[in-house]
Design a protein around this nucleic acid. Structure first.
Lengths: 295, 295
DNA sequence: TTAATCTATAGCTTTAAACTATAAATGGGA
DNA sequence: TCCCATTTATAGTTTAAAGCTATAGATTAA
């Protein structure tokens, strides 16, 4: 029983048709028939009930199909890992990011590039917790930086830093004059919030619920940048992570601390626990993890 | 990258010697050298640092070694499962048991044999919780019947029945006359108990601890039969599951209920969650699980 | 330097996996 | 009912690769 035989069998069981499976495998139909026949002899039992019209898996076939899929998946992952572990002239790394880390990630990458100039870095936007999991488990991204709270035993989650969420108001907004701002103050204002699936949306809704106040949602957005534009146009107010507001944006709106100790979020770096990360990527991970201290 | 190549590499990495690995694999040394060379070409990186005196794994070699071991293990398990799923004239099943189920297991097997007369049944004694886990995970036993409390996510644990633990006294023992028996009554008596690692030992010690009473251990035994013999010879008293005492033993000692609601134990059937059990074994499992209702 | 030990190379043989051509089986439609 | 379309199996041949033996080359210990 070798890998090729399992691949052939998976193709037949997947297509439920020898001829089409053979085509997909780029071999002739008789070769495939022969290969399956040999596999059945080796196992000592038929795997398929053949009929010129219908194919059907036997009990043994069903079992082999389930198990072989897992083994082939492992082989695929092995190939990916072996490719990555090889020290080549140039190598690649893919990081899933969210927009609100723009204030520190470029600096970390600049430093990293001095040590590893040959590394090609892909930055991919990842939205929502399900995509975090999927992106990592399909081996598409090496690391993901997110504020999504992940609860999956296959994932390693490291907290980078904690930051406050602050109110964002248009210039000249009445609330900007107030000494102290509470959830109650924001309750009746037209509110701009992230769409379903974003952790920040949940954090904000939780804070309003705990304060037992209503929230008057008028806009749902996917990017903080959109939220800031809407605020600037006097269409509503919002709550954003304080670090996101650093930089040129700062003078175009008013940001104000809110009297609410729970209005905070954590930023994590997440990766697959069992994935082998080559040295160059482990180094970037270390650099990223150090960012919490310098912030 | 196929299974054979991985096997060859594992052999070399395990022996750290091409010639000895070749011998173990029953192929010539040049064939093995060639095979590893081809594997390295395919992967695109050396797996071993060669020296006529010392071999050493490269980083890629280390990674492949770890991953390949898992894949080969999966292949082995697959072969076992495929062998078992095939309906042959005669087939085998191995059950791990403890002695204290002799009062019902033979009956279940008698009934089962009427339906599956061709099944060969191995009964193996299993002592202690670590051995339960090991025996299942090495695919040596299909099912284990035990009172050990197992906490392992790979294992499926089904409770068959609950039974009382009762005091076992020699004939004419003064305590046999008492109307009601408590832990306190047993506290100073010379006590016979199972050795470390048995659930029943823990259950008894827990009961004494909860009652805040001393236990005067004089004998440690591995089999309940031994305990009963010692009691019969007036060397001490003990506590055993009530069902164990059914049958001819019953008249040679005195058994007495103890005023202690926690002095009970559960009997479980345990098997590997992800193992494919062929129909004939699933049927026996069903028969065993039905025993709790008839008891 | 030499002997011992180990891996690599060269050239040959054998095995098995692929191909093409064709036969056999089956079910649907004329 | 019979024939055709579809699909899998068989036969025979070619090609590729995996194995073998013999031997060379490299390294260390004596």
């Amino acid at each position: 029983m070798d890998i090729k035989q399992l691949q052939y069998f998976i193709a037949v069981a997947g297509q439920m048709n020898f001829s089409k499976a053979a085509e997909k495998l780029h071999i002739s139909q008789p070769s495939l028939s022969n290969a399956i026949k040999k596999l059945e002899q080796e196992i000592g039992s038929p795997l398929l009930e053949r009929n010129t019209r219908n194919l059907q898996l036997t009990e043994a076939g069903e079992l082999l199909y389930e198990r072989a899929k897992v083994i082939l998946k492992n082989m695929e992952v092995l190939k990916i890992e072996m490719d990555e572990v090889i020290v080549r002239g140039t190598s690649e790394i893919t990081i899933g990011i969210m927009e609100s880390i723009k204030h520190w990630l470029p600096k970390v990458i600049t430093e990293y590039k001095k040590e590893y100039p040959e590394m090609m870095i892909h930055l991919v936007d990842i939205l929502g917790s399900k995509r975090v999991e999927k992106s990592l488990k399909s081996y598409k991204t090496h690391l993901i930086i997110t504020n999504q709270i992940m609860d999956d035993e296959d994932l390693e989650v490291k907290c980078l830093y904690e930051e406050r969420l602050v109110a964002v108001l248009p210039l000249n907004h009445p609330l900007a004059e107030k000494e102290r701002l509470t959830i109650a103050d924001l309750s009746e204002e037209p509110f701009i919030i992230s769409t379903e699936g974003f952790q920040t949306r949940q954090d904000i809704l939780d804070a309003f619920a705990r304060a037992d106040k209503n929230i008057n949602i008028q806009f749902e957005i996917e990017r903080f940048e959109t939220a800031v534009s809407l605020v600037r146009e006097n269409l509503g107010i919002t709550i954003l992570p304080e670090n996101y507001l650093k930089g040129p944006t700062a003078n175009t709106i008013v940001q104000k601390e809110i009297d609410c100790p729970n209005l905070r979020r954590n930023v994590y770096v997440v990766y697959l626990k069992n994935r082998h990360l080559p040295l160059a990527i482990r180094q970037l991970l270390t650099d990223i993890m150090a960012v919490g201290k310098t912030l």
